[in-house]
């Protein structure tokens, strides 16, 4: 079997003095959609940030497409074909919607969507192309945050809490978009709090607690794991 697109092993990460990740092991195969569940503060966001080298310091191994990334600067890691959608959405207030959309440079040539395709998928963004990015509604900002990494040819998407704080109808629309991205062949690692949003989408699930992976199961095993999920996540 070929190497997974993302392969994390024994990953430790720190913010300053505080030791946040304590040996995370996780893989995402090409074309797979994996969800990382856990309570607030379990280390899920830090895991995504550590993949990109955005934490203070990190130890262990993170391989993207077979390339070891520890020791690489964040922009070099991103250029291995990663698209990152941060938890706080990261919309720039001094940039228009279209400037936000066009900001990330190409990082690969897989599956790069054209601007027209993106506007077809996110019609609101076309209407509001000239507005400052932060004048958009929360839902539109979230769409923008996802849309802008689809142009870059990234093959691995790291999505952090994309359903957080959004109206149910928008969460549903995001779910449809994630599914269509998966059908297009994107590889996705999704960090989620909203289990109902993530449950029907993912091929596999990891559960984090205190900076470590404590459970790992597939979509087929999901129904037998509900009791355990209830205990860990209160769902």
């Amino acid at each position: 079997m070929s190497e997974p697109l993302l392969s994390i092993s024994g990953l430790h990460a720190w913010y300053g003095e505080s030791h946040v990740l304590h040996g995370v092991d996780l893989t995402v195969a090409q074309g797979e959609m994996v969800t990382l569940l856990g309570r607030n503060g379990a280390g899920r966001t830090t895991t995504l940030r550590a993949v990109l080298g955005l934490t203070g310091s990190r130890r262990g191994s993170v391989r993207v497409g077979g390339v070891e990334t520890t020791g690489l600067a964040p922009h070099r890691i991103a250029r291995l074909g990663i698209g990152y959608c941060p938890e706080e959405r990261g919309i720039f207030s001094s940039l228009s919607t279209e400037e936000n959309l066009l900001l990330p440079p190409p990082v690969g040539n897989d599956r790069a969507m054209s601007l027209d395709e993106i506007y077809l998928m996110f019609p609101n963004l076309k209407e509001r192309a000239a507005s400052p990015g932060t004048r958009l509604s929360g839902g539109e900002q979230q769409m923008l945050s996802v849309a802008r990494i689809l142009r870059t040819g990234a093959r691995l998407l790291l999505l952090d809490e994309i359903s957080e704080g959004l109206a149910p109808v928008i969460v549903q629309r995001l779910g449809e978009i994630i599914l269509s991205l998966k059908q297009r062949g994107y590889t996705i690692l999704l960090v989620e709090q909203n289990f109902r949003f993530a449950a029907p989408l993912a091929d596999r699930f990891y559960i984090m607690e205190h900076g470590q992976i404590v459970e790992h199961f597939t979509q087929a095993q999901l129904s037998s794991k509900m009791g355990m999920l209830h205990e860990f996540l209160g769902v």
């Binding site: 922009h75 990261g90 990082v107």
Partner: peptide
């Protein structure tokens, strides 16, 4: 940091 995470040097 975010701009760098998009692959910009």
């Amino acid at each position: 940091r975010l701009v760098q995470a998009f692959g910009i040097n």
